[in-house]
């Protein structure tokens, strides 16, 4: 980040583009200035503003972990003007990156605990960061369970990594909304699968990210399982512009999602005004 001009991105180039699903691409990006790349540090869960000059900027979580520093990875779902353009980019193309922004996950407080990741669709992206970070420090954490759902098997991101996750002793539960030819894993919505699995809340942290409707029912489900508000972590999305707590739009009450978030515990959310 530029101290005098927090709106000015650092130039970066795309090293590789991975087509995850029909409308999600993953970009692997390196800063052009080697010293920027070398000195770059961040917490899992922190975000970046990715720009295409002439089109605009959008916010994405850095979904590569801080422990793997050869590139920064972003997964981008095509929904609006900027993401449309990002999807047209190829390896070698230039982008702007302002990072790290936001608070990131409080992983220190998760050490020694069992972890439950619950993700839906593109919502797996922030979870992947923390998951890989934990896998790189596997001994610091207890059981790791991942419940990951998408509409169809084709809508699951990071499929090429599932094997590695499982090899690292991750209990990976995959589910899709409806029956699908050749699909051998679970079928049903994430909240249903959660109640079927019914993981014990004892000494466990649940980290939830996905579409608003999924989050709503998962939070309800977790409550039923006996999870306390402080054991439930989620990430919020808001329309952002500046990313540095100035431009004003991403507030929920006095909190700005861009600097005070995007990671909030359910406890924190319950203390904020209800304007999601």
């Amino acid at each position: 980040m530029h101290a005098h001009n927090p709106y000015r991105p650092d130039l970066a180039s795309i090293r590789e583009v991975v087509q995850e699903t029909a409308n999600i691409k993953t970009l692997r990006v390196v800063f052009e200035d080697e010293s920027v790349m070398h000195n770059f540090s961040f917490r899992p869960g922190q975000v970046a503003q990715l720009s295409v000059f002439g089109v605009g900027e959008s916010t994405f979580v850095i979904n590569s972990p801080p422990t793997r520093r050869e590139y920064l990875q972003f997964s981008v779902m095509r929904v609006g003007e900027v993401t449309q353009r990002i999807h047209q980019l190829n390896a070698g193309d230039q982008v702007g990156v302002r990072a790290p922004l936001g608070n990131g996950f409080d992983y220190e407080n998760m050490q020694g605990k069992d972890i439950l990741f619950i993700g839906g669709g593109i919502g797996m992206a922030p979870l992947r960061t923390l998951l890989l970070f934990m896998l790189d420090k596997r001994e610091d954490y207890g059981d790791i369970m991942v419940i990951y759902g998408a509409r169809t098997p084709h809508d699951l991101c990071y499929q090429y990594e599932f094997d590695q996750w499982q090899k690292a002793n991750v209990n990976l539960v995959l589910t899709v909304d409806n029956e699908f030819p050749g699909w051998k894993e679970r079928v049903g919505f994430v909240p249903t699968v959660l109640s079927e699995e019914s993981p014990s809340p004892h000494n466990r942290v649940a980290i939830v990210c996905g579409p608003p409707i999924m989050i709503k029912f998962v939070l309800f489900g977790l409550k039923e399982q006996g999870f306390e508000d402080s054991q439930i972590i989620t990430t919020l999305e808001r329309r952002m512009k500046c990313g540095v707590g100035i431009c004003g739009r991403c507030n929920i009450g006095a909190k700005y999602v861009c600097v005070d978030g995007p990671v909030f515990s359910r406890q924190q959310l319950s203390e904020m005004v209800n304007e999601l």
Partner: peptide, 24 residues
């Protein structure tokens, strides 16, 4: 009131990232 928007405006190969007053 200070809230602003940020947009890119480009003509040919030159442009600016501008901030403009926005309204909540």
């Amino acid at each position: 009131c200070y809230c602003f928007s940020i947009t890119d405006e480009m003509k040919d190969k030159h442009g600016e990232r501008i901030r403009s007053w926005d309204s909540c």
